[in-house]
Amino acid sequence: MQKFKETVLAPFLFVVALFVLWELICRGFSIAPTILPSPSDIWVAMVRYWDPIVSNSWQTLFTTLAGFGLAIVFGLLLGVFIGWSKTIYGALYPVMIAFNAVPKVAVVPILILWFGIGTVPAILTAFLISFFPIVVNVATGIATTEPELRDVLRALGASKLDIMRKVGIPRSMPYFFGSLKIAITLAFVGSVVSETVGSNAGLGKLMLDAQAAFKVELVFAALVALAVLGIVLYAITAWVEKRMTGWAHRGDNQGV
């Protein structure tokens, strides 16, 4: 009961309070809807533009998930590869850091140049921006295998592949699933940024058009759609993390 209060009731009431306050401020100070639309204005806009909001949400969801999927595949592969040996780790790590230091927004124009305006640059931006944390986490999980445990297995004649399969990869899984929460958020940012820079669909594009047409309440309605989508994606990956690596969360349900 206490837990329900803390994790469901309290945040819910807080959000409601926030919206009420927002509404009151907009009305009390008669702020023009072209500056800051009130929640009720946004609600009206959401109902009115429901179809475009939904279809563009699907597009953004699709590019985010496609980029995220690529990031998982390549992130895992590269992470295992980097964690494989100290030499590879040493050789690739600085390159990875340099790569990660480049703001990915700066890459979007190049991607558009190469692939044209559309879905592909959005997917690739989502991928590029989100795969780094996955690589680093998987590689770290593998590289931090206890040397004694390695010795125990090596003394038995275990190959590098054996050690990887029996210890390295399973042990990096909590790191991997932990990184997914960050990665999905980044992938989402990547998609929307790319859509805003150059695309013909998606919530980013919708916001850009709405802004150009001065439909401020639609800009905010799209923003709400983004927030909802972001929360849902985060919640799903957090749930997956919890499910997949129960052993790493030992003690969470102890001491009651």
Binding site: E146, E148, L149, D151, V152, L153, A155, L156, G157, A158, D162, K166, V167, P170, R171, W247, A248, R250
Partner: peptide, 29 residues
């Protein structure tokens, strides 16, 4: 030489395996 068994100060058990499955590990190698 795979004719040795080793144990250290830290038990180094695999947290995702039960005691039985941890003991089984060398046989998988």
């Amino acid at each position: 030489i795979n004719k040795v068994g080793m144990a250290f100060q830290a038990s180094n058990l695999l947290p995702w395996r039960t005691a039985t499955d941890n003991v089984l590990l060398p046989l998988e190698i």
